[in-house]
Design a binder for these strands. Structure first.
Lengths: 212, 212
DNA sequence: GGCTTGATCTTGTCAACGACAACATTGTGG
DNA sequence: CCACAATGTTGTCGTTGACAAGATCAAGCC
């Protein structure tokens, strides 16, 4: 992997883009085996560098995870913003949230485990805030919540349902899904609105539903 | 803490209830600093035994977390069942789910991180199934979902919203709440149904709402 | 060319940890 | 009284995160 840009094929002292390689390896490891499976030494070995090299890019493990979280929140904000601008559909933004979580499981897991990160990091704060604002925007724009309090309730409910669905799928409490299936499921779940008192509007789709 | 039942104050060879002490210490540690902060050696020291004593009760770290998860699912099933039988109110079961998560953060975190547990454990499977059945029951009983597919969508939506809300609060993405405030918030969020197209029915309550 | 400076990477080391093996202690039932 | 299982201890090994000190490289400056 990653043959250096210069023709020299033997080991070079400098990696070229070790920061990128380490983050990619970390994300892949988290996606495959969870954050606990990440070791700085393992990542270093995978990138072909010595066990202490990561220190120069991230300081420590929390620094690495913080960088991954920042990247994740930026990606999420981009995707949600794009969907909102493209469709103008509040529900589709929610679907995209779930889609993001499932297509970037490594990032997502790190993003929502603050105990892995460096809490006070200002860059993290900014990325986080931008992502949340991008999520809140469509809810505010849909403008159906009259007062401030109900807006917050609706906003939080929307976030909760997409976040909960994503979390339940990722944590293995629901069957494994293809991304396409997950989109269909998310659309139907969001449309059903979690209230048994109002009959859900059944949309088409072939998903078989939760297993256990 | 935990002076032994016998009057002998000096160190005894047998702890008395080491299993219980280790689980309590583990739950407290997870609640305070997350699962990553748990070390078998640390728990052993806290209980006043040698570093290898926990092996005889849990085998390994995953065994300890599995035992915590089983206890958690049993507690959750008890609480949800009690609420459903007491109130017959579907929404109150959801409120209780969130309440449980916030009042047992140590258990909750372990319960929904399967990578910490021994996946195949039969006791875990049973406890999990019982808890989920207790959650699903009220939804089925409310009987508003016509066909199988919409029932699954409603069921999953309900679970998602309560699980998402609990997860968001616990992960520090919402302001710290007292348990009473959280109950009020959960009630309002569940009542708002997360759909801006239908005006939310504002219930009373003094919670100020999400911060950031 | 020679020198300096900063960034990057290596080597060496230490303490904490999970896991395991071998042994000691305790209490219980035959 | 004695096997025997449960419980706890001591000792050890390999892995890991973190740190310190030094090596290598690139780029600028004289």
């Amino acid at each position: 992997m990653a043959t250096p840009p210069s023709g020299r094929s033997t080991a070079r002292y400098h990696h070229g883009d070790l920061r990128r390689a380490l983050m990619d390896a970390a994300v892949a490891t988290v996606a495959a085996d969870g954050p606990a499976a990440v070791s700085l030494r393992g990542l270093a070995a995978r990138a072909g560098v010595s066990h202490a090299a990561p220190v120069h890019h991230f300081g420590d493990k929390a620094g690495l995870f913080t960088a991954v979280a920042v990247e994740g929140f930026d990606l999420l904000a981009d995707e949600l913003g794009e969907t909102w601008e493209g469709t103008g559909d509040f529900l589709e933004v929610g679907v995209r949230y779930v889609h993001f979580a499932l297509s970037h499981p490594g990032h997502f897991a790190v993003m929502f485990h603050p105990d892995l990160q460096r809490g006070g990091d200002p860059e993290l704060q900014r990325s986080k805030e931008r992502a949340f604002a991008t999520l809140r925007g469509p809810i505010v724009a849909s403008g159906k919540a009259k007062d401030r309090r109900s807006l917050q309730a609706v906003s939080l409910a929307s976030w909760s349902i997409v976040h909960g669905l994503a979390t339940l799928i990722l944590s293995g409490n629901l069957p494994e899904l293809s991304l396409a299936d997950a989109d269909v499921l998310a659309r139907r779940v969001l449309a059903s609105r979690g209230d048994p008192l109002s009959p859900p509007s059944a949309t088409q789709g072939d998903f078989r539903g939760a297993r256990r």
